[in-house]
Design a protein around this nucleic acid. Structure first.
Lengths: 242, 242
DNA sequence: ACCACTAACGTACAGCGTACGGTAGTGCGT
DNA sequence: ACGCACTACCGTACGCTGTACGTTAGTGGT
């Protein structure tokens, strides 16, 4: 101990001195709740361990009792979101059910913008939660039910997966942001029509398509499903016949 | 000057004292060259203004003479990559040319993994370079040439764009990483077949599809083009007829 | 009553982007 | 030839980040 503190020795920078939080005031679930709320409200960039701890009314290092670090916390948050996925009711033909399943995944993604970025940036080195694996298995089942061969089913799944995440990313980053929409509108209106004739000509349609991203996803999904149905009706690859 | 340095006063932490670089040793182009090299070699996470400056043999703050900050430097790097895009030769039918154009964009993206992440995370608030705008205009032209209506052309372009970036992201993050591939293989082999029967059954095909991502892109692209061709042959939306 | 255990915490360190001010080399007007 | 304005390069410093390490205080077991 350095020395006794005299009455008015100008406390260094006034760190506010929170009183120590009581023993049971933290848990993995509580931390994840606040983390997901913070991520949804302030975004991934504004998130920090310090901000999360302050939001919880707790010292920063208390978080490390429950998670090894930021990465593990993020993985847990991602899994929590994926676990909330509930497959749509199984009605209709195989392609109708496949369509519904894809849309459900897409809505799950776009509903949690910050977590979507975590998903997009994941290297795929770590396990997914059972819910996600089950969803994958179900989609493969539907593709097989539609009559696709083993290889076609695997590749068609890959196509749907790639399109879904790309689409969700796009919507989260631009379609859902009024500022980005306005910037897009201004940019497209300022283009010289003589140099970019088709862009200028289709400006209203492009703008409209950008404004409501969900419709755009379903539109593209139907294009892909059209190709998949063509596969289903023929033994060999029908899509490549250009 | 504070005071004369005595013989062995234990220089603080030894900052190496680089000698000042001569006057003409920097330029925007040179900085971008090194930045792109660093990004490609070490990845986006390992990149920092300090590391870039050291790579250039220059003080950190010298970079701020040419770029307002890290964001502006990244945008310039992105534009430099996009400017390198050369459209493929215009031969064949409209859909063959569209296919070739998409593949060229996809190869451009997967060739610069770090820059792709910059692209994926961009909010779309800022201008694109003329090269990119021209590529967009050309694709719209091809879609129109194929007979698509104004709205269908705009939406089909959106579909291709979403699939292309989602696909490139996937390939860069997992297909091109031996470690990620190995993790995927191990994960899929460890799944209980009774709970995920289709996943287990299609394991070899899924693995094969993951290994060569470029083929996967072309496969999905052909599925989408199949849907687009169906649109081209009918006035109303043909894809939604499920 | 005491102890072992551990949840919550404070401090510290290395690294980040960059605002601000300083310094030295250059080109121009005289 | 001289001086001066200009600016490319740079050092320092500030506030931020994630987290390693050691400390403290509350709790269940004996």
């Amino acid at each position: 101990m350095p020395s006794e503190q005299s009455t008015a020795t100008a406390a260094p920078p006034r760190p506010v001195r929170r009183s120590r939080a009581p023993r049971g005031s933290l848990s993995s679930d509580l931390i994840l709740d606040h983390a997901l709320r913070l991520l949804d409200e302030k975004g991934l960039d504004a998130f920090s361990m310090r901000a999360l701890a302050e939001d919880l009314g707790v010292g920063t290092m208390a978080l490390y009792t429950y998670f090894r670090g930021k990465d593990e916390l993020f993985r847990a948050a991602r899994d929590r979101v994926l676990a909330a996925y509930t497959p749509p009711s199984a009605e209709g033909s195989w392609d109708q059910r496949l369509r519904a399943a894809c849309i459900a995944v897409h809505e799950l993604f776009t509903g949690r913008p910050a977590v979507l970025r975590l998903l997009a940036e994941s290297t795929g080195n770590d396990d997914f939660i059972d819910t996600a694996t089950a969803a994958m298995d179900r989609m493969l089942a539907l593709l097989r039910e539609g009559g696709l061969g083993r290889e076609d089913a695997a590749r068609a799944y890959g196509t749907l997966s790639r399109f879904t995440i790309g689409s969700a990313l796009r919507e989260v980053r631009v379609c859902a942001r009024p500022e980005a929409l306005e910037a897009f509108r201004a940019r497209i209106a300022a283009l010289p029509p003589e140099r970019f004739p088709h862009l200028s000509d289709l400006a209203p349609e492009l703008l409209l398509a950008t404004e409501n991203g969900g419709d755009q996803y379903e539109y593209g999904l139907d294009l892909i499903l059209c190709g998949i149905r063509a596969l289903a009706q023929q033994p060999a690859s029908a899509a490549t016949g250009s």
